[in-house]
């Protein structure tokens, strides 16, 4: 079973979002997603300043057998991409909710996170996909 931390919000397309103390939102891919992809060999994060629409492809994660777009769970402006991933894409496999974060975003709306899935709702999504 994959981990679904209780303090985060989720998108159906297997991204997570975390509200940081300064009001910015940190985004990554879930444990389920990294397990499905396998060993990551390449990650492309968006450049700072890029304006994201909710649901738009904003990053690429690539393993030897699959490449997948990452979709922005919320609208906003990228303020930082995780530069460490360029040399160490395996951080996502090792610590997808921590050092394997993808980007930090200044949200377009203060209530952006409300539209996302709760941990319980995301777990249900995973459970129904397994069935």
């Amino acid at each position: 079973m994959s981990q679904v931390p209780a303090e985060l919000k989720y998108a159906k397309s297997h991204e997570w979002a975390r509200l940081l103390p300064d009001g910015r939102i940190e985004i990554g891919i879930t444990d389920h997603a990294q397990q499905a992809l396998g060993d990551l060999v390449f990650v492309e994060v968006p450049e700072t300043g890029r304006v994201l629409e909710a649901g738009a492809a904003c990053a690429v994660v690539e393993s030897v057998k699959a490449a997948s777009d990452v979709y922005a769970p919320i609208a906003g402006t990228v303020v930082e991409g995780n530069a460490e991933l360029a040399a160490n894409p395996e951080l996502i496999n090792q610590d997808c909710y921590g050092r394997g974060w993808l980007m930090r975003v200044q949200p377009a709306s203060a209530t952006a996170l409300e539209a996302l899935l709760s941990p319980e709702a995301y777990s249900a999504v995973l459970a129904s996909a397994e069935a």
Partner: peptide, 14 residues
């Protein structure tokens, strides 16, 4: 063969 994730048999339409 490497970097195959760029290719049609994995990325299909992309």
């Amino acid at each position: 063969l490497t970097l195959q994730a760029r290719e049609q048999h994995i990325r299909r339409g992309k």
